[in-house]
């Protein structure tokens, strides 16, 4: 049989294998990294809401505590969104004729709750619980960022499993006293993980790493 290809083609054939593998590997890396970008996770993207409710005004300027509105954050899995009545506590008088609040007043008249656009939404196969985090000293701003500076809420984290795990492997660094739970300005002091954080971990009786990273903790 006469040779079909020039001998140099051998090198080319081998090279193409290497290049093919590189492209495949690169493609894989791209997909994985792409999944982590805010473009896919929708982190840092403010969501439009039916009412222009601003945490910056209510929390940042007026100093209302998170738990005034998110009442169940310490006792239940969900932080809870406020009922229309909670808004009316103040807006029955304040800005009572503001057009921005028409939807709130309509909801109050009809009894139909306001339908907010969800910002955070874990997949249903992952179990998350606010109360354990809050009661064991993980503050709102650790996970949600400076909400008091957000005119419209965005998501500060990817909410990927790796995000949960990087903290569950060593939560000491973020633990705070109960009085600071909703403090938006709290930052961990230097060497917190070894000193103050470690003490708090003992006080809160934080479970060991193998429990916190076991699959059935979050997939139950």
């Amino acid at each position: 049989m006469p040779q079909l290809f020039h001998r140099g083609m051998n090198t080319l054939a081998r090279l193409s294998i290497v290049i093919g593998l590189l492209v495949a590997g690169g493609g894989l890396m791209f997909v994985i990294e792409f999944n982590r970008t805010p473009y896919v996770t929708q982190a840092f993207q403010p969501r439009e809401q039916p009412v222009q409710f601003s945490h910056k005004h209510h929390v940042g300027d007026d100093g209302i505590d998170c738990r005034y509105c998110h009442t169940t954050v310490e006792t239940a899995a969900t932080a809870g969104l406020p009922a229309t009545k909670t808004c009316m506590n103040c807006h029955s008088q304040l800005f009572a004729n503001s057009p921005y609040l028409e939807i709130v007043r309509e909801s109050w008249r009809t009894g139909q709750p306001i339908k907010w656009t969800r910002v955070h939404d874990l997949p249903d196969f992952a179990y998350f619980n606010h109360s354990i985090h809050v009661n064991k000293g993980v503050g709102c701003s650790t996970c949600h960022g400076r909400v008091d500076m957000m005119p419209l809420v965005w998501n500060e984290a990817s909410l990927h499993m790796e995000w949960c795990l990087q903290c569950h492997r060593n939560p000491n660094a973020v633990l705070r006293e109960q009085k600071d739970i909703t403090n938006m300005e709290w930052v961990a002091p230097k060497d917190h993980a070894e000193k103050g954080g470690a003490e708090l971990a003992k006080k809160y009786n934080i479970q060991p790493k193998n429990v916190l990273t076991s699959c059935s903790t979050c997939h139950r």
């Binding site: 969900t78 969104l81 009922a83 656009t117 249903d124 196969f125």
Partner: peptide
Amino acid sequence: MHDNPRYEANEDGAN
């Protein structure tokens, strides 16, 4: 699997 048929608290964003 992300949205199971079960109803969750705040599922439709409403209290």
